[in-house]
């Protein structure tokens, strides 16, 4: 409790003198291999695409508070994307803007879940529930990565996605326990999003080469399932059983929505390269 912190030390338990100005932590660190850069690129693209999708709700959400909430979540995700893409680009001298605005669809590495369209509000909440639960488990473990920059970004991000998960859980429960119609829509939305869950937990060749640096996706499946089961059982919902989709976003295969999303996201930067305001 705050009452117990001493007045003499305004920084609580932080000893500023012990804080090293490590190059990795100040953002000037360079990804040490093409593999590390590729890994950061995939995580950065997931965050960037989800941020862009959520931005689409601003001024359109069911209530004003949700405009603000989804906008806030998008802003956090954009912050994660910036850190991750800056690090990914450090390997070959590309900036975060080069990566966000001047790559084409086949060069993105986002997974299909993040590329699913917003749909109705229940679809967005189902996507958020899956995404935030997955990202929380991922970042919680990545914060122990042997790569100092990835560890720092993850330790920062995990606190924010935990809050996003709270938001998604509360809405899932509210929709499931609300009216007959809201419950029906929540069930439909979970079923529509579930084919894209498996891809999140597939180990790839890249992961095999990054032992200690990357988090092995397959190890996240059990904790993810545990949280999802606990949440859905609160309102008597079943975990959907559906055929998983092919996926392939970490290579270069994307859901058809990505091209349209990129066209909108990139048009201004491409028409006016280098413009600032």
């Amino acid at each position: 409790m705050s009452a117990h912190t001493t007045e003499a030390d305004p920084h609580g338990d932080v000893t500023v003198d012990a804080l090293e100005l490590s190059a990795e932590l100040v953002g000037s660190g360079r990804a040490e291999s093409a593999d590390v850069a590729e890994y950061a690129l995939g995580l950065g693209d997931d965050a960037l695409i989800l941020a862009q999708q959520l931005g689409g709700w601003i001024a359109k959400a069911p209530e004003l508070e949700e405009d603000v909430a989804l906008g806030n979540i998008a802003l956090d995700l954009l912050g994660h994307a910036r850190s991750l893409l800056r690090y990914a680009g450090s390997h070959d001298g590309r900036s975060e803007d080069d990566l966000a605005y001047f790559r084409d669809e086949h060069e993105f590495r986002s997974q299909w879940l993040f590329e699913q369209p917003n749909g109705d509000f229940a679809h967005t909440i189902a996507r958020q529930l899956i995404a935030a639960t997955y990202l929380f488990e991922l970042y919680a473990r990545l914060s122990a990565s042997s790569d100092a920059t990835l560890a720092a970004i993850a330790a920062k991000s995990v606190k924010e996605v935990e809050y996003h998960r709270d938001h998604a859980v509360l809405w899932t429960l509210r929709l499931a326990g609300g009216t007959e119609e809201s419950r029906r829509r929540m069930i439909v939305a979970l079923g529509d999003m579930w084919p894209y869950v498996d891809e999140l937990f597939r180990d790839t060749g890249l992961i095999e080469r990054l032992e200690g640096v990357a988090v092995r996706p397959s190890t996240l499946r059990e904790p993810f399932d545990e949280v999802i089961r606990a949440v859905l059982s609160e309102e008597g919902l079943e975990v959907p059983t559906v055929q998983p989709s092919a996926g392939g976003g970490r290579d270069d295969a994307h859901f058809p929505t990505l091209g349209y999303l990129l066209a909108e996201m990139q048009v201004l930067a491409r028409q006016h390269p280098g413009a600032t305001w």
Binding site: L25, A148, A155
Partner: peptide, 17 residues
């Protein structure tokens, strides 16, 4: 001016003042 991400900020660091 340098920006560090780690250790991540927490409201526990806000002063009583």
């Amino acid at each position: 001016v340098e920006t560090v991400l780690s250790p991540a900020w927490t409201t526990d660091w806000m002063t009583d003042e």
